[in-house]
């Protein structure tokens, strides 16, 4: 069995995001970036699957991103992936996740042996569209199960049973393999790479693919156009009501009625 895990470099969730003046994107200079936490669940799942089963030949990690994204690949390699594919070309820079999925699919197709299991995060914390996983499955023509919270792979590796939480219930989905899963929080806890593994990760192979290798990248027609990005409006000032409980309640109702106009 061969497992592929897709990772993306995203801004740290605590980083202060500054929007570019023209609204075309965000300022990346000095921005703290990390491996997307949901994608990390995918890497962890892949590594754990290899640890549990004897039939996993290879765990490969793929990332679409510029030079700075190599750190994310190192993290995945330190967590236990065997080798990495870095899809890196200025032509591929986009804010269009369907285009990203198309490029990734083309890159994945170049691997002749193919993958039995492809794992992504449920969504990425930057653009939050949740589109990469399902689109990738579509482009690769494999079945897809989204937001997986429980997983069993058949002993012979031909099918899997996934559990996903839906409104008020749990759904159990059976699926033939090869398949693509997107991972929800709670299925696995990502490990903290040990130092010897971080060292070993430096020596693991990273294959770089550019537009020269992925000739069909331009054929993508799918996708959305980013019109503009703007920061959320500043939080309105907090108003403290003081006084006796009765007065405060009266004042509160008055404000809700007259200023907030919600009652």
């Amino acid at each position: 069995m061969r497992i592929l895990t897709v990772v993306k470099q995203v801004p740290d969730s605590n980083a202060t995001i500054k929007v570019k003046g023209d609204g075309s994107g965000i300022e990346t200079a000095g921005l703290k970036t990390v491996c997307d936490p949901f994608d990390e669940f995918g890497v962890e799942l892949a590594v754990q699957t290899r640890e549990k089963r004897s039939d996993v030949d290879e765990v490969v990690v793929i990332c679409l991103g510029d030079d700075s994204a190599s750190g994310v690949l190192r993290t995945a390699l330190a967590m236990g992936a065997d080798r990495a594919i870095h899809v890196n070309d200025p032509k591929f820079e986009s804010m269009n996740e369907l285009f990203d999925a198309w490029v990734l699919a083309e890159a994945i197709k170049k691997d002749e042996k193919g993958f039995d299991l492809i794992v992504c995060g449920k969504h990425n914390i930057d653009l939050d569209s949740g589109a990469v996983g399902p689109a990738l499955a579509e482009f690769l023509n494999v079945p897809h199960v989204g937001a997986v919270q429980g997983l069993e792979i058949a002993d012979d590796g031909s099918s899997l049973t996934a559990r996903r939480r839906i409104e008020g219930a749990e759904e159990v989905v059976e699926c033939s393999m090869p398949a693509l899963l997107t991972i929800e929080k709670g299925l696995v806890e990502p490990r903290y790479p040990s130092l010897p593994n971080l060292m070993k990760a430096k020596k693991k192979p990273v294959e770089v693919l550019t537009s020269a290798d992925i000739s069909d990248a331009d054929a993508s027609t799918a996708g959305t156009d980013l019109v503009s990005i703007s920061p959320p409006p500043p939080r309105p000032e907090c108003k403290m009501i003081e006084g006796e409980p009765e007065e405060m309640a009266r004042e509160l109702v008055k404000l809700l009625r007259e200023e907030a106009k919600v009652v």
Binding site: D12, N14, A15, K32, V34, E189, P190, R191, Y192, P193, S194, L195, P196, N197
Partner: peptide, 22 residues
């Protein structure tokens, strides 16, 4: 435990990662 085995109480991972990135 931490550096070789990568084994430690899970909450510490949040602290380590916070330290590493911020």
């Amino acid at each position: 435990l931490v550096q070789e085995r990568g084994e430690f109480p899970n909450e510490l991972q949040t602290a380590f990662r916070g330290l590493e990135s911020n």
